[in-house]
Amino acid sequence: MRCEVRFMAFNLVKDGVSVKSIWGILPNGMPLTSCTSEMEEILRRSHPEMCYHCGKCASGCPSARLLEFNPRVIVGMVQAGLVDELLKSSVIWMCASCLKCKERCPSEVAPSDVIQALRLMTVERGLPFPEGYSTLMFSILEHGMIQTPQEVPTRELEFVDRKSLGLPEAQKPKDMAKFSEAIGRLMEE
């Protein structure tokens, strides 16, 4: 799947076909005009149709430098109606969320918001997403935090914890049962 998506993305920008002409032919923003879900509404609000492909987002993107990832191409694929392909691809999980693209976009598109909306749509449709997120959610459900207090090493490789360092007890929700009930309900949504 990943190769297929990359191939399509490649075609969008190469082979003498300008993205603009594809944009003109394909139904611009079509999958987004009739919103069927809350998450698609979020995608619509990030205004992918406003992109005119200047490439400023990709030029400052740290992930584009290191991975098969390009925020402009992702926005272009959304414009071209290739949302389903993106939801099944690993590319949408390669963004480091540094938000430089959102800050610098001259057309107020916010590629990072487009990517976040695609991530949320992946989950909403029951498609696979990186399992690390489930681990984080279950830790919050159980402890209120993504991580419980750890023993950490000093430079001399002695291990210390909050108590030995004289720090007060760590915070967590007062009534874990009530907290977990609320979180459980939200996780089901």
Binding site: I42, L120, Y133, M137, I140, Q171, K172, K174, M187
Partner: peptide, 24 residues
């Protein structure tokens, strides 16, 4: 002043569950 009862802010969860993030 200590914030008794505080939890995660939800930031890492915003990628997979908007309502859970917002609640946290």
């Amino acid at each position: 002043v200590e914030m008794e009862g505080a939890s995660c802010c939800g930031h890492p969860i915003k990628n997979v569950s908007m309502p859970m993030w917002l609640y946290l």
